[in-house]
Amino acid sequence: MIRLLTRNIVRFLVLVALQVLVLNNIQLSGYINPYFYILFILLMPFETPPWVGTVIGFLLGLSIDMFANTPGLHAASTAFIGFVRPYFLRYISPRDGYEPGSFPRVFYYGFNWFLKYTLLLVFVHHLILFFLEAFSFASFGHVIMRIIFSTLFSVSLIMMSQYLVFRK
């Protein structure tokens, strides 16, 4: 239990640092902003109480906001995926449910399941994030383009991380 907590705290700090120090400086062709930090939400244990997920999402987003100087923007979108994650998990659960002691990872539930899970949550997150950022439906097409490309990029990064870092 303590080990789980420490691992999560370290992961939190590493992901935030990676996001604000490296990935926030990447802006490819004006469309693509990878947001890798939500991996933390994705990797939270199945047993996390739903409300804890929401609050952690808020705090995670807020930490990113502190550095990106956009108070509330990431907090709002990350809190939202923290909120919907339990419903998504229930929606895409395998027939036998989730095994105790397992984590939402490629290692446990396979590439397809994890891709579906990641795509859904990352897309929702980016949808809210980019629309909140643009805060208008005037440049609808442009915002949609950004959402799609950034989602693809973020999802690729997260999938890669599953093979490079979180192998087990």
Partner: peptide, 12 residues
């Protein structure tokens, strides 16, 4: 969720 989201939007 409602409280947290409201707080985020207020900040925004």
């Amino acid at each position: 969720f409602l409280i947290v989201e409201t707080a985020a939007l207020l900040l925004l």
